[in-house]
Design a protein around this nucleic acid. Structure first.
Lengths: 213, 213
DNA sequence: TCTATATGTATACCAGGTGCAGAAATCTCC
DNA sequence: GGAGATTTCTGCACCTGGTATACATATAGA
């Protein structure tokens, strides 16, 4: 694709990766609040000022890896097969995530992922930072609904916040259970049932809830 | 009720109020980020250390006044008339809020409220702090649904996050429009229509959306 | 190789927030 | 009303996240 990224560009990527890795390693070892950005900078052999040139805030050292997921739902809606309802595409995608143990569904118990999840859930400032992703996901999804499903402005926004909130809730529930010790494979069946229930609720409304799980 | 709150208690309340008022006044005048907590402490004739004994963080100087609303939806569900669906009670309550221009619906354009709203919306750290209220509201509402409507655990949590997200979205939309210059009285009709639409969406699901606004 | 420019560094600085030791106020009981 | 226990307030030093400034270094492009 790209013939040569250029030395400068390559160095930037390496520095970025080096800082990120040093940060994650230290955070997982000693805890997010127990490690200062100065220590991370030192471990990455970079000045504090440079660190902040790559990551706008300490929290971003952790959550930048999840930045892609911000527009994931929107992309799924845009890329759905013709004549498929957005919600159907989103459900299928979420179920696929569960099957594949995508960390974004909370259903991944690889030790590294698990420790990271726990750390995020236990650190208020990281949780807060994640909430901002939620807001971004809502906006992106609303726009996708407007543009590809011809959904009116208000409906699109309301649908988006509901969908994102529900997906988030499902993932958080899974993550908490798995972080608490339940193996992902054991949780899988329940997670699927819960997801089906949740999407049914979204489709048919709260007045006629589907049969209990 | 309470014979005597005691001098100590009264003084504490006065100090609390003094700090809060000094803070709001200064923030409204110069902006949240332009005023340091040291300045607030000085204006309230209190040491910085004492200020932090009353308010755990700078943001709380602003948002503590909205703390009551955290459990508002839960209270509405608990206090609903017999044989009334939770969602019905919540819709009526929200519509009442609109009629009464309750600031929590975003439909209040008194200059003071307006300025405060604008300040919160324009200050990321304050928005983030508000999100934490949302999480608290979700938990409280889920519990109320479980206890008074016999809703199963998962359904309650999912319903709660949907409801809170939708109410929040409605309020934010109103607040933004009003902050942008639209008079509350002018916005009222539209706000009611939007709210009806939103609650209908919650009741009947996204698959069969009600007619457009 | 030389130069413009992008990137990194060192240092000092600001603001939010906490720990600590002691002063001051309040409460309690006589 | 006063003495001692207890709570609250204060001043100070300190830590950390984040930024500004001014200077050094490395890369790109000719």
């Amino acid at each position: 694709m790209d013939g040569k990224p250029g030395l400068r560009e390559r160095k930037k990527q390496r520095t970025h990766a080096a800082i990120s890795e040093a940060a994650i390693t230290l955070f997982l070892e000693h805890g997010f609040n127990q490690v200062s950005v100065a220590q991370v900078a030192e471990a990455a052999e970079v000045s504090k000022r440079t660190l902040f040139a790559y990551f706008p805030a300490k929290e971003d050292l952790v959550v930048h890896r999840l930045a892609d997921h911000e527009t994931e739902s929107a992309r799924v809606v845009r890329a759905r097969p013709p004549r498929t309802a957005p919600l159907t595409a989103l459900r299928e995608h979420f179920l696929k995530g569960l099957r594949e143990r995508d960390p974004v569904t909370g259903l991944n118990d690889h030790p590294q992922i698990l420790k990271l999840t726990r750390m995020i859930l236990d650190t208020p400032s990281l949780v807060a930072r994640m909430e901002r992703f939620k807001a971004g996901a809502e906006r992106a999804l609303a726009q996708a609904l407007r543009e590809t499903a011809d959904t009116p402005e208000l409906t699109a926004r309301l649908a988006a916040v509901q969908i994102v909130a529900v997906q988030w809730s499902l993932a958080q529930d899974n993550a908490e259970r798995v972080a608490y010790g339940e193996p992902a494979d054991e949780r899988y069946t329940g997670a699927v049932a819960d997801a089906e229930h949740a999407f049914a609720l979204l489709e048919h409304g709260l007045r006629h809830p589907p049969p209990r799980t």
